[in-house]
Design a protein around this nucleic acid. Structure first.
Length: 310
DNA sequence: CGTATTTGACCGGCGC
DNA sequence: GCGCCGGTCAAATACG
C-alpha cells in the first residue's frame, strides 16, 4: 500500500491537541505536529465562497491565509447547540442512546421489512467531527489501523463506479467514523477519511505498544510530508467533492523527518493493510509499516485527474 | 448464537 | 418548495 496523500480538515486546537494524546499514554513524548496553522484559521470569519471552494480543489489555497474555518468542526456560533467540541466525541454515542430509546417504541410499529417509517430523532445541527483524509494505494479497501470498525453503510459514489463505505469504531462510547472509497480516477487508490477522535487506546496494541506509532521510529523513520495541508469544509463535504479533501503531494514530496510539515499518523496502526485482526505484536507492526511506507508515492497525477473531474 | 455485513429507507442540508 | 445527495438507521442476512 502506498500513501499518496494526507489531508486534514480544520481542527480546533483544543480538539486536535487532544487527538493524539487520546491514543497515547501520558508518558508519550509530545507530538510535534497535527495542529495545522490553528491560529491562522481559527479566527478567520466563517465564509466559504464557491471560488474558495474551487481554489481549494485546485490546491491554490494557502491554509495560512485563505482557508476559512470549517464551521462544522468548530463550535459554530451559528449552532445553537452548546454541546461543545470537547464533548462531541461522545455525541454520537449519546445519539445512539437516544435513537435506541426512541426506537423502542418504533420497533413495534415497524413495517414488515423492518425499514423504519419515521423513527429518527431530530438532532438539530449535529456537529461534525474533524476529519482527516488520506489516499493510499492499495488493493484492500479497508485498511487496518489497529482499531475495530463496524460497517454501517455503503453508498454509491456519484461519478464513480466504486461505492463508499461507512465505518464506525466498535468500541463503546467511541464515535469515530471513517469513510472508505476508491478513487474513480485510479481504482488502485483508496481514499480513507477519518472523522472524530478515539476515546480509547488502540485495542490491537498491547499495553506497552500503545503510543509508539506516532513516533517516527514506528514508521520506519518515515513521516508524511504535507506541504500544504488542506482542510475539509462543510461545503465540500456537502457537495460530495471527494477530491478536494485530498492533498496532492507534490513531486518534491520527500520522505524525511523534516520538521514543520510532517504529519504523523493519527493512530497507532496507521497504514496497515487489513488482514482482519492483524498481528498485535508491535515489532511486527513496525516491520510491516516500514514495508508499506517504502511505497509512499508522490502523486502529481492526482491534480489533473481531479480537475477533469470537475 | 453472537457478531458483522448488507441494503433500502429515511433524514436533513443545500441549491435551484 | 422541491429535488438531489450524503450520511445514517436498522431489519434481514451472512458468517464464525
Amino acid at each position: 500500500m502506498d500513501l499518496l496523500g494526507i489531508h486534514q480538515d480544520f481542527v480546533a486546537p483544543s480538539l486536535f491537541d487532544s487527538f493524539q494524546p487520546s491514543i497515547l499514554p501520558p508518558s508519550s513524548p509530545p507530538l510535534p505536529v497535527f495542529h495545522h496553522h490553528d491560529d491562522d484559521i481559527l479566527h478567520e470569519p466563517h465564509t466559504y465562497s464557491k471560488q474558495q471552494h474551487l481554489n481549494h480543489q485546485a490546491g491554490l489555497l494557502s491554509p495560512a491565509s485563505t482557508v476559512p474555518e470549517s464551521s462544522e468542526v468548530l463550535n459554530n456560533p451559528a449552532t445553537p447547540n452548546s454541546s461543545s467540541i470537547s464533548s462531541s466525541s461522545n455525541e454520537l454515542a449519546a445519539n445512539d442512546e437516544q435513537t435506541k430509546a426512541g426506537d423502542d417504541e418504533d420497533k413495534t410499529k415497524k413495517p414488515l421489512m423492518g425499514f423504519r417509517l419515521k423513527p429518527k430523532k431530530k438532532n438539530p445541527k449535529r456537529q461534525r467531527e474533524p476529519r482527516f483524509a488520506f489516499m493510499t494505494k492499495s488493493d484492500i479497501d479497508h485498511l487496518d489501523d489497529g482499531y475495530r470498525w463496524r460497517k454501517y453503510g455503503q453508498k454509491a459514489v456519484k461519478n464513480s463506479p466504486y461505492p463508499r463505505s461507512y465505518y464506525r469504531c466498535t468500541t463503546a462510547g467511541c464515535g469515530v467514523k471513517k469513510r472508505v472509497e476508491r478513487s474513480s480516477d485510479d481504482p488502485t487508490i483508496v481514499v480513507t477519511t477519518y472523522e472524530g477522535q478515539h476515546t480509547h487506546p488502540c485495542p490491537m496494541m498491547p499495553r506497552g505498544a500503545i503510543g509508539i506509532a506516532p513516533d517516527s521510529s514506528a514508521f520506519g523513520a518515515s513521516s508524511f510530508i504535507i506541504p500544504q495541508p488542506m482542510y475539509l469544509n462543510h461545503q465540500q463535504q456537502q457537495q460530495q467533492q471527494l477530491q478536494p479533501y485530498i492533498y496532492n503531494s507534490t513531486p518534491s514530496l520527500n520522505i524525511t523527518t523534516a520538521s514543520s510539515n510532517i504529519i504523523h499518523p493519527p493512530f497507532p496502526g496507521f497504514l496497515q493493510e487489513r488482514p482482519r485482526f492483524s498481528n498485535p505484536n508491535p515489532s511486527a507492526l513496525s516491520h510491516r509499516d516500514h514495508g508499506l511506507l517504502q511505497d509512499i508515492v508522490p502523486s502529481p497525477m492526482r491534480t489533473e485527474a481531479k480537475e477533469e473531474d470537475q
